[in-house]
Design a protein around this nucleic acid. Structure first.
Length: 821
RNA sequence: GCCCGAGUGGCGGAAUGGCAGACGCGCCGGACUCAAAAUCCGGUGGGGGCAACCUCGUGUGAGUUCGACUCUCACCUCGGGCACCA
């Protein structure tokens, strides 16, 4: 064997980076592709720290899928861009005292360089950045479409204010009452005029469509939870003054047990229902609640508080008057802001009844009784039971009673079947600088006027001092010459909206722009959009399950309704990837266990690093990064390298495929193809290793090492190419191919060639393995039994006992059941 | 509290009703070497036995089955999501 150069990933990778760029290997012909496949990965936020190993893990997993699809004959479009607006960037800019307009492009440049080293099949000719006026022009355009359709509305509402960010936050950005980005900072409630997208109008559709999507179950259930559908009824409790309190309940079957009514402190009827002698108490209570921040109210200690209004309302079922209370455990933003309290069958109401000594009535006799046969102590919240103390409905099951009672009250005009959702409207206003200005102008004469489309984009002006302040007004308001603008309708002096929009709006439509990055005249070219969308596969993290993914579904659905898109769901298939941890813990700066990709790529090569990340565990679960393990992957690639070298330098390239290798090859094709399809990259890699081990050991067996040849190695290289693209290209070329390996065809699986003709049949006696016998694949049960009984060990365990039963699994196992003892 | 996911060698993990521990790391032994590294070959769950073999073993406890890591029920632990949502 002649001596050759060792595998040098640095050189190989530099060579192929240059060649791919020069040959435009990764550029997709968008207009003429016959078999389009849009492979999307979540675009990164270009942080100052540079590319994170989590980014690499996500991108590589997606890239492997894309590259495989290409080898399988698809025209794959794999673009990438940068999500560069937003508070993250702006806060960092403030910290290092550099204008984001300077800082962010620098970060992007660094990110792009790092990304290119990873060896992704990205078509860089369609790169985009959300901070580019050519991009956010269309972000603003989308706002205008929604505005015209009445889906963007300005309303005063209690909103989440982060004193640290000095801006409002969407509900989704508030975690347990704390700011998503400042875990130490309690979010306050402010009552401000804000722009909202009325996503709640789409709640039912967003929920129902989930069932039709090919998405990770975890992601779907998170969205379903977040939308939070509750079916029930609105019931009317008539007050003595003739007004009606609407309460929402999911348990109309318990209405006979409703012994009082509770209004949220902000409920508009509190005013009129408060009796003169209670006014002081009620006012005091409302003030106290209003002064509380969301944290104390929602997640603080759950000791119930409340105050009696002095008024009564009539229970529509019993006809009895029950007291009306005000309490902050009822939230204005959910349902009708009022409830009927059923202390016997609701834990919260029960607590309240105990504290304020209110009447508790049992109206459900649970099916399941306690150990002594007694009915369990109240409260019981079960659906499994029969009604009691409920007039003509006594004895009915809960499930039946829900319908029956609702109908009965409906006839009396006291009930309406109702579904409520937990989802809130999407607050998109941000009182910050680093975002696309909301394209609205306020005129004293004409009111709220949208910026005409021909005037888009509303350029984010340069602003030296972009620091946010306490006022609740965006820093843009301080720029007089920008703030004052003639009204587009009447021409008189008017004022610009100074808030910018939420970053999640930027990312809610970026995938629509990728194919159309060259089109200045529209947000997305209709022809290209039709050809390439919706997304064939999308890979990303579950941290975006209820933010980005739901917002982009909503925007797509709205644009579909407005006639701009031919589909209502943006992502056909979505898969959530797992998280890479280190030493059993999430990577974080404070723990000091962060893996920086650059150093590993430098030392081991991008191909080894890519493959190692994929080898750590199932892609959809993530894995534990350990420094020691990476050497195993590198050793594997070294072995591939030297095998290729040996095959190339051997005489007679038309050597036949060794029969054992051939069988293993077809088993491997099947396994690897399947595994990649299911994103089981770790086991796909194992199979490739096993295959190479087989080739090598067959070469070892015969002295002339004929098992190592082009026929054996070419398919291996193709299957390896998605994982280690640079190295596979280099090997492919040295095997004498002049085209890119990514223009080759994925190997075809032939079942007949994969079948073993000799098998090891496992012999069990009473379910325990007692031997293995060699047999032909299709051995019959009788032959197998005869063969098994010849085995000494099996004989011993069968003894002289009578065979009661034989279980035979063709080609795998025979189990001889004899009399026990 | 509710919903979802996971618990398997020294480690990452494999096997979803049929040989538990594939593949890889690490470790042990051997070859090559003056030596080491690299590489190559072999071994590697626990206990017992000279051995052939026997036996225990997939978080815990029960159950279904000829046979259970896999299915069912109860529980424990960890991770994620939701949480006064009526």
């Amino acid at each position: 064997m002649q001596t050759t150069e060792a595998y040098d990933p640095g050189a190989v990778e530099a060579k192929w980076r240059a060649r791919w760029a020069e040959r435009r290997t990764n550029a997709t012909d968008l207009s003429h592709a016959a078999n389009p496949y849009f492979n999307l990965m979540m675009f990164p936020y270009p942080s100052a720290e540079g590319l994170h190993v989590g980014n690499v893990f996500a991108f590589v997993g997606s890239d492997i899928h894309g590259r495989t699809r290409r080898l399988q004959g698809f025209d794959v479009f794999e673009p990438l861009g940068f999500d560069a607006f937003g508070i993250h960037s702006e806060n960092y800019a403030l910290k290092v005292n550099t204008h984001p307009g300077k800082l962010i492009p620098r970060n992007i440049k660094r990110f792009r360089e790092q990304l290119k080293r990873v060896g992704l099949m990205v078509d860089w000719e369609h790169e985009l950045a959300t901070i580019d006026p050519a991009y956010y022009k269309w972000t603003q355009w989308i706002f205008l479409q929604l505005f015209k359709a009445g889906l963007a509305v300005k309303k005063a509402a209690p909103v989440n204010w982060c004193p640290e960010c000095k801006t409002v936050l969407a509900n989704e950005q508030v975690i347990d009452g704390f700011c998503e980005r400042h875990p130490e900072t309690k979010v306050h409630q402010r009552f401000l005029e804000q722009w909202f997208f009325t996503i709640t109008k789409y709640a039912a559709r967003l929920l129902e469509n989930l069932e039709t999507l090919d998405w990770s179950d975890s992601t779907r259930s998170m969205q379903a939870n977040w939308i939070g559908c509750s079916k029930g009824a609105d019931l009317e409790f008539q007050t003595s003054k003739g007004e009606s309190i609407r309460v929402f309940t999911t348990r109309p079957d318990t209405v006979f047990g409703a012994t009082w009514v509770v209004l949220a402190p902000e409920h508009p009827m509190v005013e009129s229902l408060t009796a003169a002698e209670k006014r002081n108490d009620v006012e005091k209570y409302r003030r106290r609640t209003a002064a509380m921040d969301i944290v104390s109210r929602k997640v603080g200690d759950k000791e119930k508080t409340g105050v009696f209004t002095g008024s009564y309302a009539r229970n529509p079922a019993t006809g009895e008057d029950v007291p009306v209370w005000v309490a902050d455990y009822v939230l204005m933003e959910y349902g009708t802001g009022a409830i009927m309290a059923v202390p016997g069958h609701d834990e919260r109401d029960f607590d309240f009844a105990k504290k304020f000594e209110l009447a508790i009535v049992r109206v459900i006799e649970p099916t399941q009784t306690g150990p002594d046969g007694e009915a369990p102590e109240l409260p019981t919240t079960t659906w499994e039971g029969k009604l009691v103390n409920s007039g003509q409905f006594d004895g009915m099951s809960c499930a039946t009673a829900v319908g029956a009672i609702t109908e009965w009250l409906e006839e009396k005009g006291k009930a309406t079947s109702q579904t409520h959702y937990r989802l809130h409207d999407w607050c998109i206003s941000r009182q910050r600088y680093w975002g696309p200005p909301i394209p609205i102008i306020y005129c004293d004469k004409c009111g709220t006027v949208p910026v005409p489309e021909k005037d888009l984009p509303v350029i984010l002006p340069e602003l030296k001092d972009f620091r946010p302040d306490e006022s609740g007004v965006s820093p843009l308001a301080r720029l007089e010459e920008w703030y004052h603008v003639p009204c587009p309708k009447c021409g008189t002096s008017a004022r610009r909206e100074t808030d910018v929009s939420d970053t999640f709006l930027d990312s809610a439509w970026y995938f629509l722009r990728y194919p159309s990055t060259d089109y200045p005249d529209c947000a997305f070219d209709p022809e290209l959009t039709k050809r390439w969308l919706p997304i064939a596969q999308y890979i990303g993290g579950n941290e975006h399950a209820v933010l980005h993914l739901m917002y982009s579904r909503f925007i797509t659905m709205a644009l579909y309704d407005l006639g701009w898109l031919p589909f209502e769901e943006p992502y056909r298939r979505f898969r959530a990837h797992g998280t890479i941890i280190r030493d059993g813990a999430k990577m974080s700066k404070s723990r000091g266990n962060v893996v920086t990709p650059d150093a590993y790529i430098e030392r081991w090569g991008a191909d080894t690093f890519r493959m190692y990340l994929m080898f750590l565990g199932p892609y959809q679960e993530g894995g534990d990064f350990r420094d020691e393990g990476i050497a195993g992957i590198r050793r594997f690639l070294d072995k591939v390298w030297s095998a290729v070298d040996e095959a190339r330098s051997a005489n007679g390239s038309s050597r036949p495929l060794d029969p054992v290798v051939q069988r293993k090859l077809h088993q491997t094709i099947q396994k690897v193809t399947d595994d990649i399809e299911g994103l089981r990259y770790n086991t796909a890699i194992s199979s490739l290793m096993e295959y190479l081990n087989t080739v090598r050991s067959r070469a070892e067996c015969d002295g002339r090492r004929t098992a190592i040849n082009a026929q054996a190695l070419n398919p291996l290289l193709i299957m390896l190419a998605p994982f280690a693209p640079h190295m596979a290209e280099e090997c492919w070329e040295s095997m004498g191919h002049s085209q890119s390996i990514f223009d080759a065809d994925w190997p075809k699986f032939d079942e007949a060639l994969a079948l073993e003709d000799q098998i090891q049949l496992v012999v069990q006696v009473r379910g325990r393995v007692r031997g293995r016998v060699n047999a032909v694949r299709d051995i019959s049960q009788d032959d197998a039994l005869a063969l098994a009984l010849k085995d000494e060990r099996v004989k011993k365990h069968v003894g002289g006992m009578e065979i009661k039963k034989v279980i035979f699994v063709p080609g795998r196992l025979i189990n001889i059941v004899v009399d026990g003892k």
